[in-house]
């Protein structure tokens, strides 16, 4: 049902319907902003990149054939923007704010321990090579399938899996070297 509605919005957006464009921005701006924040670790940079991504997508929407879903296409444009941005400016350690979900059911000690671990893992993710980092964020945090990540990064599913496995091994290595594990 939602997918049909989205297809309808995309079709209307292609014909220049501003209402449909607004609906699509509404649906995806938080998700894309969060993804770009996880990639850049900076609110201002993530906001600027999100705006650029949406403007680019809707300027080019007439060329969107719908072979992959609109969401995957959005992630593809966002990932290209993020990778280019990180090439110019890798995130500094100070860019990593320590804001983590707190589960009210957890005891204070366990919650603290988990927050501590999460902050170390987040820092370790920032140390990964750009494409490995994108694969980890897309897979674990954004919940994309390997097939979707392959379309986003324009590579094979096998390459995506290999990049993910290498990234996870590398993360463990970093955390072990820092005596976190």
């Amino acid at each position: 049902m939602e997918q049909n509605q989205e297809k309808e919005w995309v079709a209307r957006a292609r014909r220049g319907d501003r209402g449909a464009v607004a609906c699509l921005v509404d649906r995806y701006e938080r998700e894309i902003f969060t993804y770009l924040f996880r990639m850049t670790r900076n609110v201002e940079d993530a906001r600027d990149l999100t705006q650029e991504v949406f403007i680019k997508v809707f300027r080019k929407i007439s060329g969107f054939r719908g072979d992959s879903g609109f969401r995957t296409w959005l992630y593809r444009v966002a990932t290209n923007h993020a990778l280019n941005f990180l090439k110019r400016r890798p995130p500094a350690a100070s860019d990593v704010p320590l804001t983590y979900l707190s589960d009210p059911a957890l005891s204070a000690a366990v919650a603290l321990e988990r927050r501590d671990m999460a902050s170390h893992v987040t820092r370790a993710v920032q140390a990964l090579p750009r494409r490995q980092k994108a694969v980890v964020v897309l897979r674990v945090q954004e919940g994309l399938t390997y097939a979707e990540i392959a379309r986003v990064l324009d590579c094979s599913v096998g390459n995506c899996k290999a990049a993910y496995h290498n990234a996870v091994k590398r993360l463990r290595e970093i955390l072990k070297n820092e005596a976190i594990l």
Binding site: T99, L101, R114, V121, V125, V140, Q141, R172
Partner: peptide
């Protein structure tokens, strides 16, 4: 170690 690493990645939420 693996579940702790994956949980750590998942717990990273956007800032307020």
């Amino acid at each position: 170690d693996l579940p702790g690493i994956l949980e750590g990645i998942k717990e990273d939420s956007p800032p307020s």
